[in-house]
């Protein structure tokens, strides 16, 4: 294993454990959605370097993929929300990630989802993203969430629609090539989402 991917032990491991104990965890019917950790990195690497990598800003090399992971995780620290890992409750296997971020210069928080190949086509991304969406609106009181994806990525568009997002054509005109969908809290309360 690359030396920078070996998790800490001793006192820094305790610091990390304490930190994660203070962060939220979201349970859904099949999944545990929780903040990403260093041990989840190989799954991130697999997704970013896999066939969907081109939809995620790729192609990615080792350095770029890890920098992106670390900065998405760092958002927990800087923004109070960040990269979530999607864990299968039964097997404890990490199936992918929900990226909840707010990059410098963006006007609003963003929601993205990425899955390993074997987890696709089972509604996993929708189930996990729905939990994070509800957390963002009901706990963090975020006014909106924006979803950016490659317009060729039909799976992402399907998830966006199932989440109740609507296409933002005005923003797309300015964004040159990205599909942009937007989620806002429903007046009908959380029930309206499910």
């Amino acid at each position: 294993m690359k030396p920078w991917l070996v998790p800490s032990n001793g006192i820094p491991a305790d610091v990390t454990a304490k930190l994660h104990a203070q962060l939220p965890q979201l349970e859904t019917a099949r999944l545990l959605v929780r903040p990403a950790r260093l041990v989840d990195y190989p799954v991130w690497d697999e997704i970013m370097k896999g066939p969907n990598g081109v939809f995620l800003g790729g192609p990615w090399d080792d350095r770029g993929a890890y920098l992106d992971f670390a900065q998405c995780v760092g958002s927990w620290f800087l923004r109070g929300f960040g990269l979530w890992a999607i864990e299968d409750q039964q097997s404890s296997k990490v199936l992918g990630f929900v990226a909840h971020g707010h990059e410098y210069g963006c006007l609003e928080a963003e929601l993205g989802f990425l899955l390993i190949e074997t987890a696709q086509g089972r509604g996993i991304a929708t189930e996990a993203a729905r939990a994070v969406r509800d957390y963002a609106f009901s706990v963090l009181k975020q006014p909106s969430l924006v979803l950016y994806f490659d317009p060729r990525n039909g799976a992402s568009r399907a998830v966006a629609l199932k989440l109740g997002a609507t296409q933002d054509l005005a923003a797309e005109t300015q964004a040159k090539g990205a599909a942009i969908y937007r989620l806002v809290p429903s007046d009908g309360g959380m029930e309206a989402y499910t």
């Binding site: 800490s8 820094p12 990390t16 930190l19 950790r37 900065q71 760092g74 958002s75």
Partner: peptide
């Protein structure tokens, strides 16, 4: 900067 902050989350230092 987010990467440097992420180090604290990932490694505990």
């Amino acid at each position: 900067f987010a990467h440097a902050a992420g180090m604290w989350m990932l490694r505990g230092y």
